[in-house]
Amino acid sequence: TNFTTRQLTELEKEFHFNKYLSRARRVEIAATLELNETQVKIWFQNRRMKQKK
């Protein structure tokens, strides 16, 4: 998935405060950013892996 700059900014901002999202928060973010819930979930999984390295 190619994310827009706005989407990436918002996802990174959320990640800064929360490494893990509740389902409710994931649904909320997905709706706000016009993404589906799975895209948000996978982005967070990938971002956590990236941070571990």
Rank of each mutant, 00 (worst) to 15 (best):
N46D: 11
L21M: 03
T9P: 06
A30P: 03
R23H: 14
I29N: 07
K52A: 10
N36M: 05
A24C: 11
E14G: 03
K50E: 15
T5L: 11
V40Y: 01
A24G: 09
R25P: 03
L33D: 00
W43C: 06
N46W: 10
E14H: 09
A31G: 11
K19D: 11
L33M: 05
R26L: 15
Y20E: 14
R47S: 06
E34P: 00
V40S: 06
K41W: 08
N36H: 12
R23Y: 12
N2T: 13
Q51D: 13
K50F: 09
Y20F: 12
L11I: 02
K53A: 07
N46T: 10
L33A: 06
A31Q: 14
T5H: 08
W43K: 00
A30I: 00
E14C: 06
Y20A: 06
R25T: 00
K53Y: 09
I42R: 10
T9M: 13
A30L: 04
S22A: 04
R48E: 14
E37A: 05
K52G: 15
A24I: 06
K53Q: 06
E34M: 09
A31T: 14
A24K: 13
K19R: 11
T5N: 11
N2D: 09
L11H: 04
T4H: 00
L11D: 04
Q39S: 09
R6Q: 10
K41F: 07
T4C: 01
N18G: 09
F3Q: 04
R6P: 06
K41M: 11
F44Y: 05
R48V: 09
Q39C: 09
L11T: 01
H16R: 12
T32R: 15
K13T: 04
K52P: 08
K53P: 11
T38W: 10
E34H: 10
L35C: 10
R6K: 14
R25F: 02
F3K: 00
E10Y: 14
E12F: 01
A30M: 09
Y20W: 11
E37Q: 07
N2W: 03
Q7L: 03
N36V: 05
R47C: 00
K52E: 08
T32D: 07
E34N: 13
R23E: 14
L33H: 00
T4Y: 00
T38R: 10
L8Q: 12
T9D: 12
E28F: 09
Q51W: 12
K13F: 05
L8V: 13
V27C: 08
R48D: 09
A24T: 11
T32W: 09
K53H: 11
T38K: 14
R6G: 12
R25I: 05
Q51M: 07
S22K: 06
L35V: 09
V27P: 03
F17V: 14
L8M: 13
Q45E: 15
E28V: 07
K41N: 11
N18L: 04
Q39H: 07
M49H: 06
W43R: 06
K13A: 06
T1S: 07
L11M: 02
N36W: 02
Q7D: 02
K50M: 12
N46K: 07
E37L: 03
L8E: 14
L33P: 02
F15P: 02
E28C: 05
V40F: 06
R23T: 13
A30N: 06
T38F: 06
S22T: 15
F3T: 04
R48L: 15
S22R: 02
N36G: 10
Q51H: 08
N46V: 07
E10S: 08
K19G: 09
T32K: 12
L11F: 03
R23F: 10
Q7W: 00
I29H: 08
Q51L: 09
Y20D: 15
L21H: 02
V40A: 05
F17P: 00
V27T: 12
K19V: 07
A31N: 11
K41G: 12
R25D: 02
E37N: 03
K13C: 02
A31M: 08
N36C: 08
T9R: 13
V40H: 03
Q51V: 14
F3N: 05
F44K: 07
T5S: 12
I29L: 12
F44M: 05
Y20G: 07
E14L: 08
N2S: 10
Q39D: 12
H16M: 13
T9E: 14
S22E: 03
R26P: 04
R47V: 00
N2A: 08
M49L: 11
M49V: 08
E28D: 05
L35K: 00
T38D: 15
E14R: 03
N36L: 05
F3R: 00
N36P: 14
T38P: 01
N18I: 02
K19A: 14
E14A: 11
E14Q: 10
E34A: 13
W43T: 01
Y20P: 14
Y20Q: 11
T4P: 02
R25Y: 02
K41D: 15
N46C: 10
N2G: 11
L35W: 00
H16G: 15
F3G: 01
L8P: 03
F15S: 03
N18R: 08
K13M: 06
V27M: 12
T4G: 05
Q45G: 05
K52H: 14
R6S: 13
F44L: 04
K50S: 14
E12C: 01
R26Y: 09
F15N: 05
N2Q: 09
F3S: 02
L21W: 08
R25A: 05
H16A: 14
L11N: 01
E28K: 09
N18C: 12
L35M: 09
E10V: 12
L11Y: 00
F15G: 03
A24N: 09
Q51F: 04
F17M: 11
R6F: 14
E37P: 08
T32L: 13
I29S: 02
E14N: 06
Q45T: 09
T5E: 15
T1N: 15
E34L: 10
K53F: 08
Q51I: 12
T1C: 09
A31C: 11
T38A: 12
K50I: 14
E12W: 04
A30C: 06
F44P: 03
M49N: 08
L35G: 01
T1D: 08
I29K: 01
N18F: 02
T5D: 15
K52F: 08
S22V: 03
Q39K: 07
R26Q: 15
Q7A: 06
Y20M: 06
N46Q: 13
A30G: 04
K41E: 15
R47P: 10
L33K: 00
Q51S: 13
K53I: 08
V40G: 03
E12V: 03
R48F: 08
E14F: 07
K13W: 02
T38Q: 14
Q45W: 05
A30D: 00
N2V: 09
S22W: 05
K19L: 02
E34W: 04
I42E: 15
F15T: 01
I42A: 10
Q7S: 03
N2I: 08
Q39F: 04
V27E: 14
N18M: 05
I29M: 07
K50L: 15
T38H: 13
Y20C: 14
R48N: 08
F17A: 15
R23A: 14
L35N: 04
E10R: 06
N2P: 06
Q51C: 11
N46H: 14
N2R: 09
I42F: 05
Q39V: 09
E37F: 04
F44S: 03
R23W: 15
R23S: 13
A24F: 04
T4M: 05
L8F: 03
K52I: 14
T9F: 07
R26D: 04
V27F: 11
R26G: 12
E12T: 02
E14T: 04
